[in-house]
Amino acid sequence: MNTVHLELVRIGKTFLDEKLGMETCAIAQIDLKIEKGQFVSFVGPSGCGKSTLLRIISGLENSFEGEVFLDGKRILKPHNEVGLVFQQYALFPWRTMCENIEMGLEIMGMGKTERRAVAKEYIRLFGMEGFEHLYPCQLSGGMQQRVAIARTLIMNPKVVMMDEPFGSLDSQTRNDMQEFLMDLRQKRNDTVLFVTHNVDEAVFLSDQIVVLSKRPARILRIFEINCSRPRDRTSKEANDIRREVIGILRRERMDTSPVGS
């Protein structure tokens, strides 16, 4: 159980704008080892490189420094063993809910009746029955987000990454989605990398919180949270960690040393 599952070795990323001849260093250097079944949150200032980090791990970026290993194998291109739920849902507008969820299975070459049956299962699990033939534009934000998560989980990836999945939801829907995610984890025990701006959310959900610096991102501190689940959002441990994380982030914001140095 305590073996390294996902390993990031000296990850760095600099964007090069060829037109302006400008370089933007998004990630300075990140080393991280993640064990199987862990729920790891990343928090950090806006624009610090969190989405970029997830894109690198998913294999979508084709030029970066360092190496990403999944079970000892290097990740070089996108693969359905590493799922990514995008910050902007990224649902296919021309596909119904059901067809969106089935997309990965369809690409795998699974037959129509078979994949429909699997999709139905996920639609039930996510409490979305009755909406399966609607298009994304006809669904609420919370439901779109669940479709995006279902579309990723249906592939049973070894690592599930979610990029601020609840960022644009109202706080009630957000709480519901957090509870939902926790229930889901009890059933599936996925390894999850979760990006969020919301420290409360990170404390409520995670086994580990990785606090990132402002751009270019590096790891400032890693918190281990061992409280039992289901968690009480207002318990003392939760509050202590929350206060500490917020303190680090505030100091990081105040610090005005030049970016990218």
Binding site: L60, V82, F86
Partner: peptide, 22 residues
């Protein structure tokens, strides 16, 4: 939206899949 192409790629889409399905 290029994000949709990325989404398809994370689902293992080949160039052919991207062409016909996206």
């Amino acid at each position: 939206n290029p994000i949709l192409i990325d989404a398809a790629r994370t689902l293992n889409a080949t160039q052919r899949d991207i062409f016909f399905k996206v």
